[in-house]
Design a protein around this nucleic acid. Structure first.
Length: 116
RNA sequence: UGACUGAGACGGGCGAUCGCGCCGCACGAGCCGAAAGUCUGAGAGGUGAGGAAAGUCCGGGCUUCACAAGGCAGGAUAACGGGUAACACCCGCCGGAGGCGACUCCCGGGAAAGUGCAACAGAGAUAUACCGCCUGCAUUUUGCAGGUAAGGGUGGAAAGGCGAGGUAAGAGCUCACCGGCCGCCAUGGUAACAUGGCAGUCCUGUAAACCCUAUCCGAAGCAACACCGUAUAUGGGCAGUAUGGGUUUGCCCGACCCGCCCGCAGGUGGCAAGAGGCGCGUGGCAACACACGUCCCAGAUAGAUGAUCGCCACGGCACGCAAGUGUCGGACAGAACCCGGCUUACAGGCUCAGUCACUCU
């Protein structure tokens, strides 16, 4: 287990990842990985659209994504250089949403991106 | 005990492990330096969403721009007195409406300045005669002319109500009483107003239709604004060639775009000590004000406040005579410059004051 990666702030990183990054589609989210130059480290970007609901619902999804990624990341994966973008799909939120189901889904996606 | 009414506070609690933002502390390393300092790392500690943080509907503070006074246009408000930084808010009170009552109300200037409107129905909507009533003439079972708003019918509303006089029949036509309105006077009240008296007037509604009256209002917002930095980011390089392909409304014109790699810039202040919270006292019916004491209580910016457990409360359901056991569940909702209100959403229980009904003593 490692510390949480820094967050992606630049919009061009997001758009480049959508266009050129490797992607994996899962039931709750779409994951993209964009390799970047050496020494930049791993960064995490999360996108949750307003379709999911109000600020409370969107915040919850973002926190679950962050916590899942934090617990899933290995030191080897965390030391890679690139941006991991997680886009929550509109069905991702439900009132009964549990941490474990989300973690399982993201694990599947990260294996698909060969991050694990 | 039941059914209500009003006000207020709350919005699970404690603990463990891992993680995140911010704050100052001590430590190590780097840089510049005489020093103060600055940057980064790991460490222990402190602290970290709401009653509505929401809607952004009013009112302020603060900031920048504009600005002689004043007028017009436009907008807002609307009994009276008070509170406040200010308000469309709050408190008190007045009149009206509703409720047996505690209380409640998205009830509150002017219709006697003027204009407009009043659908449908109805004869007629601010003036009119359908039926009826009365008079006259013609005629004989009705017709014509005139008078009439008492009766019928229509409507939300039909000339204020009722009685008497009066009359051909009637009519505020006249009069008494009652109601409304306007004026004056007296008493009470700071006032709105209430009560009473005198005189007048005989009086449709609508101002959320225009309008009139009084009072208030410069504009835009923290993405404001100030400072530092960056510098044609519509950037650089490579490849490629086009009378091509794509987007833009089906077509034409026009406009814009094209593959790969590198790169892309923002930061600090504003900004958390405030019309501040809590306690107590004084004044006031109250809103609130003042005095004293005490506390410091989020500050992010792709935006922290999270995850997993344990125990205890709470609520529902099942089992049980009971103690209890098992199981399921936790609303509305996330700060973004800061305050005062309003409005809307909300599981669940709690406290205080009061009303009505019934029962018991």
């Amino acid at each position: 287990m490692v510390n949480l990666p820094r967050s992606v702030k630049e919009s061009f990183v997001f758009s480049r990842a959508y266009k050129k990054g490797k992607s994996v589609v899962t039931s709750h989210a779409v994951l993209y990985f964009l390799p970047r130059k050496k020494g930049s480290g791993l960064t995490l970007g999360i996108t949750v659209s307003k379709k999911l609901g109000g600020a409370v619902q969107r915040n919850r999804v973002k926190r679950l994504v962050r916590e899942s990624v934090r617990t899933l990341l290995t030191p080897a994966a965390a030391s890679r250089d690139g941006a991991l973008i997680v886009v929550a799909r509109s069905r991702a939120y439900s009132p009964r949403l549990k941490m474990q189901t989300f973690r399982r889904v993201l694990e599947e996606g990260m294996r698909g991106l060969e991050l694990l």
